[in-house]
Design a protein around this nucleic acid. Structure first.
Length: 271
DNA sequence: CCATATACCTGGCAGC
DNA sequence: TGCTGCCAGGTATATG
């Protein structure tokens, strides 16, 4: 579920409220993708200083070390002064002086990992190969164009890989390529400089718009406040196979790329 | 270096 | 109704 917009919406809804909170206790449920890396009791007394985001990871800065949180495919965070009873899919919990933070993740592809610092082996293993951040100054057009030229694979797959630019997942990859007018099967290396520039702009535009809409709620995503997102209502192609293109009316098509569904308009998106 | 397949796990849904 | 098979927002890792 969570692509960059959902992770950023989570961060925005959490950061101010959890800042300066002191951890009272930590609890684990079933195993997540990776082990926490410390005894939960070792987190007691730590203070949450802030929440950053890198790609689809949330970084909870503590006064000693930090927690790397990934929502995987089905994860969501909730932060509230008082919580409902623990459910069968609540697999991590931090009780703090300002409220209780819970990770609900039915599929358990998500993770919470404590690391002593961002330069540790474990942190570098997880964060070290991430591509450019698409929002803000770091998303350099020339570097993006150079990166695309080096890739022979389909542009959809290159976007998903996350080592050139982070944050574009399966929903937004289709949406971004629609906005840029690019066929998902086009080889990245064969995109003209002009089309690469349109793609660069489309990535920023779609992701920023999705953040402003509170992300996409397909099944059960919600912010740490519990609010659903609305971007799925304005999706142009994702999940719309057979329905008329919102721009030209041509039926939307779907195909499989690297075991993932891709949606596109055969008329608006030229190879 | 790059591209692709695989694995992880649960729940929802279409089809029979 | 109950079963089976497929599909789902991600990505580290192995393999070619």
């Amino acid at each position: 579920m969570p692509e960059l917009p959902e992770v950023e919406v989570t961060r925005l809804s959490l950061a101010d409220r959890i800042a300066d909170a002191r951890i009272v206790s930590a609890r684990l449920g079933k195993p997540l993708r990776w082990p926490l890396g410390v005894e939960p009791s070792a987190l007691e007394g730590r203070v949450v200083q802030g929440v950053r985001r890198r790609g689809k990871y949330l970084l909870l800065d503590l006064d000693q070390g930090l927690l790397l949180v990934h929502l995987g495919m089905s994860g969501s965070l909730n932060f509230a002064p008082t919580q409902a009873p623990v459910g069968p899919h609540d697999h991590f919990e931090l009780v703090t002086s300002r409220g209780t933070l819970r990770l609900r993740d039915p599929r358990r592809f998500g993770a919470v990992v404590w690391v002593a610092g961002e330069d540790t082996v474990q942190a570098v293993r997880l964060l070290g190969r991430l591509g450019m951040e698409p929002l803000g100054e770091a998303f350099d057009l020339a570097a993006f164009q150079r990166g695309l030229r080096r890739r022979s694979g389909a542009i959809k797959s290159v976007l998903l890989a996350g080592d050139l630019v982070v944050g574009v997942g399966n929903i937004y990859a289709s949406e971004v390529l629609f906005l840029a007018g690019i066929r998902p099967t086009t080889r990245a290396s064969r995109l003209s400089a002009a089309r690469a520039e349109r793609l660069h702009a489309a990535i920023r535009e779609v992701l920023a718009r999705a953040v402003s809409q509170g992300g996409s709620t397909l099944r059960d995503f919600s912010s740490a406040h519990g609010e659903a997102g609305h971007f799925q209502l304005e999706a142009k192609v994702y999940g719309r196979e057979g329905l008329p293109c919102r721009v030209c009316g041509t039926p939307i098509r779907s195909l499989r790329q690297g075991q993932r569904s891709t949606y596109y308009c055969p008329r608006c998106q030229r190879p």
